[in-house]
Computed example of a mutant assay.
Amino acid sequence: MKHFVGVGACYLDTILSIPHFVVEDEKLRASSIARRRGGNCPNTIEVLQQLIEQRAGAAELQANLVAVLPNRDAAAVNDIEASLGGQSVLRHCIYREDQVEPASSYIIRNTATSSRTIINYNALQEMTSAEFKDIADTLGNEAGRIPDVSLECMLYLRQQYPGVKISVELENPAREGLQELALHADVVFFSKSWALVSAESDYSAAASLLCCTWGEDGAWAYEPVSGMTHHAAAHHFGDDAVVDTIGAGDTFIAGILYGMLFHSQDWRCAERLRFANEIAGQKVLQEGFAGLGALMAEV
């Protein structure tokens, strides 16, 4: 069995919806509160699992999350397990047994504009390169998606497991070191903010695909080998209103990777881009990620 591996932070999100953003020292009553598991890689894995479940041969691929979590018996770990379908997805996670609180994200969502402010808190010690190498050796040459950990870990994968395929997501342009990681990745996902500040950078040294979402202007993909650029227009669903944009980018990534994993022969790049753009568009019309796989099976 092959493995799809997502390496990154796993959060528990608390989402407060408010009618408008407050000024300093102002009081405001939230219109709703929601709590759910978050984090870019876990979100992508949740959507990818749903898409895999809709096809025959789903058992051919096992999704794995590699994240730093608190004590195995912490209530938060049980919640995370349940959100991802059980312990098997978490069997390669690193547990800090002296901690009981997970990484947390507090999201203030402005319902008038669909914008949001995100405040993160994480007291867990970060994964070390030695811990990562032990996990990589356990998985062997079947690792699928290894996002941002460190350049040292990526170079280790390239040296020890030449057949591994690596993707990275460049989300925060202020975070140092991500540009170097992109130079060694097979697939690079850019945020709009990153693309705006680094438009002149060359990331095509190893990459076979570069992708970027652009909000209302849709999404773009570039294939360095052929020099072809593809664009998918943003999806519009009649009078349906945007409900929840949190995780839309993670959903888009799941769509692209699903296309690469299961439709490498029968879908061209433009078709994978269209599929990823559509499932991301469906996601913003609902809270959370539940049911996206079944929804895409119907369209």
Score class of each variant (00 low, 15 high):
3 H>L: 08
5 V>K: 00
7 V>Q: 05
8 G>C: 08
9 A>E: 04
10 C>Y: 06
10 C>S: 13
11 Y>S: 00
13 D>I: 09
14 T>G: 12
17 S>W: 08
20 H>E: 07
23 V>Y: 00
24 E>H: 13
27 K>H: 07
30 A>H: 12
31 S>E: 14
32 S>Q: 12
33 I>G: 03
33 I>H: 11
36 R>E: 13
40 N>V: 11
42 P>W: 07
48 L>H: 05
50 Q>T: 03
52 I>M: 15
53 E>I: 00
63 A>W: 00
74 A>W: 08
76 A>F: 05
77 V>W: 03
79 D>R: 07
84 L>E: 09
88 S>H: 13
89 V>W: 00
90 L>D: 03
94 I>N: 02
95 Y>L: 07
96 R>Y: 11
99 Q>V: 08
108 I>R: 05
110 N>W: 06
111 T>C: 10
112 A>K: 14
116 R>Y: 08
123 A>L: 10
130 A>K: 07
133 K>Y: 14
134 D>V: 13
134 D>Q: 15
137 D>M: 12
143 A>T: 06
148 D>S: 15
149 V>I: 15
149 V>T: 08
150 S>E: 07
153 C>F: 04
162 P>S: 11
162 P>A: 10
165 K>P: 03
171 E>D: 12
175 R>L: 11
177 G>A: 09
178 L>C: 00
179 Q>D: 14
180 E>V: 06
188 V>M: 10
193 S>M: 11
194 W>C: 03
197 V>S: 15
197 V>P: 02
197 V>A: 14
201 S>V: 07
201 S>F: 12
206 A>K: 15
209 L>F: 11
214 W>E: 08
216 E>K: 15
216 E>G: 13
218 G>R: 00
222 Y>G: 02
224 P>C: 10
226 S>C: 08
227 G>K: 13
227 G>T: 07
229 T>N: 05
233 A>P: 02
234 A>Y: 10
235 H>G: 12
239 D>N: 09
242 V>S: 05
244 D>F: 10
246 I>R: 01
250 D>L: 07
253 I>T: 14
256 I>M: 11
261 L>G: 03
269 C>G: 01
274 R>C: 06
281 G>L: 06
281 G>K: 07
282 Q>F: 11
283 K>I: 11
286 Q>D: 01
287 E>R: 03
294 A>T: 03
